[in-house]
Simulated scan of single mutants.
Amino acid sequence: MTQTQGRLFDEFAKLMNDAAGVAQGARREVETVFRAQGDRFISEMDIARREDIEIVRDLAAKALGEVERLSARVAELEAKLAAAAPTMAPDEPVDGA
């Protein structure tokens, strides 16, 4: 009887190992299908990638810096023009030509 019980437990252990292997294989298959469906869904939705957003953010920061620099330059030129305006005659060109 002891040998029969040991053999029964061995068979049961093999059955459980096989079932665990099948379950892991099924889990991997479900993950693969789910990931593929998710990738397809995201690609169809035209969602921007994080890298693309970071590139646009960097470009916007550079453009904002350039706008600020040019605004300061325009203010400086307007100040020079305003300072020179009272000394110029009304029909005299601004650039001195």
Score class of each variant (00 low, 15 high):
M1L: 12
M1Y: 09
T2L: 13
T2G: 13
Q3M: 08
Q3N: 14
T4G: 05
Q5K: 06
G6A: 15
G6K: 14
G6I: 15
R7L: 14
F9E: 15
F9L: 15
F9N: 15
D10H: 05
D10N: 08
E11I: 11
E11C: 08
F12D: 11
A13Q: 01
A13M: 01
A13K: 02
K14I: 10
M16K: 09
M16E: 13
N17V: 15
D18R: 07
A19V: 02
A19L: 10
A20W: 04
G21M: 07
Q24Y: 02
Q24S: 06
A26N: 08
A26W: 01
R27I: 13
R28V: 10
R28S: 14
E29R: 08
V30I: 11
V30N: 09
E31F: 05
E31L: 10
E31A: 09
T32W: 05
T32I: 07
V33Y: 04
V33P: 01
R35A: 11
R35G: 04
R35D: 11
Q37S: 09
G38M: 11
D39I: 05
D39E: 14
I42V: 15
I42A: 10
S43C: 01
E44K: 07
M45N: 06
M45Y: 02
M45D: 02
I47D: 00
A48M: 01
A48D: 02
R50V: 06
E51W: 01
D52F: 02
I53L: 05
E54Q: 10
E54V: 09
I55C: 04
V56T: 12
R57G: 00
R57L: 03
R57T: 03
D58I: 04
D58G: 05
A63S: 09
L64A: 12
E66Q: 07
E66W: 01
E66K: 03
E66T: 03
V67T: 10
V67Q: 11
L70A: 03
A72I: 08
R73K: 10
V74C: 01
E76T: 04
L77W: 02
L77F: 04
L77I: 08
K80M: 14
K80A: 14
L81M: 11
A84Y: 02
P86F: 00
T87I: 05
T87K: 13
T87M: 09
M88D: 02
M88T: 04
A89K: 12
A89R: 08
A89P: 01
P90R: 04
D91N: 11
D91C: 01
P93D: 15
P93I: 03
D95T: 01
G96K: 00
G96Y: 00
G96A: 03
